[in-house]
Amino acid sequence: MNENIKILKVTGLKKYFPIKKGVFRKTVGYTKAVDDVSFFARGEETLGLVGESGCGKSTTGRCIIRLLDPTAGKIELEKNGDYIDIARIEKNKLKNLRKDIQIVFQDPNSSLNSRMTVRDIVADPLKAHKIGTHQQRTEKVKDLLERVGLNSSQMDRYPHEFSGGQRQRVGVARALALNPRFIICDEPVSALDVSVQAQVLNLFEDLQDEFGFTYLFIAHDLSVIEHISDRIMVMYLGKIVEVAPSNEIYMNPQHPYTEALLGSIPDGDPHSTKVRKTFSGDVPDPSDPPPGCNLHPRCPYSSDYCRKVEPELKELPDHKDHYVNCHSAEELNLEGYQKSQQV
């Protein structure tokens, strides 16, 4: 696959959840979980998606694989040079989509059926698509388990007999069963201890080298996302505020929210004398986002204009591939991530 092909193009994606109240369950408002989001993913890249709890990361991922039906927008997947709009696939034809796109979840405990053996869990998608004979499926399961670093002799055990890291590997093996091209990783290492997290991150990198997967990698840990991603999208309150290559976004952030996120990273260096630049206040309620730029109540640089007019995500004129959703993009002198100065 060509690395410059846009394998996924998302345009104007919205997902509003109705808020219902009272005995008649009347809709009294909407949680704008994803609110007019556009981005693309190139073939064989890892596109990181980062942001604080509730900003809409999982909802974005779940719309792409149609675990949720989008409220509006296009989700186009490249197939043999053409694009199909995932948002418009009829419910009964969704099964075919699973051959192209798969998802790995955060919590390996709740995403694996505890009453199925690992063999059945991994073979399940193959069975659902009527692929191969029983014998062929068993061979494939063995192969997949070995691929993700598990011993195939353990395939008749149940999930609870494995450690958290091993269970996450089972989830990865299941996602690989149908040879997808695009894998959504929704916080796949967040529940893991650091020693095991490192094993699983390495596994994702190896599999990408071997099979040329494209990942949408969702995480809230800024060190993990920097490590794994080629490009990174930062989300805030249902909107994408900045997209850029990973190094660029850490060293040359152009959105005040990105600056605040980077400033919040504990640098873990006892010698450092770094003074943190952090944000005050809490994330507002997504059912009632502030008018204008939705960051303005927390943004130290906001002006009257920001309170009234909503900015748009635009590519910076002199930084290719760097998109920012801020009226003052390139006018502010923002601070990137500073490696601590050693004494």
Binding site: S195, V196, Q197, S223, H227
Partner: peptide, 14 residues
């Protein structure tokens, strides 16, 4: 095991 920002080396897990 901890990824460090700006150091693009392969992690060495336990």
């Amino acid at each position: 095991s901890i990824p460090k920002i700006g150091e693009h080396r392969r992690l060495t897990p336990i």
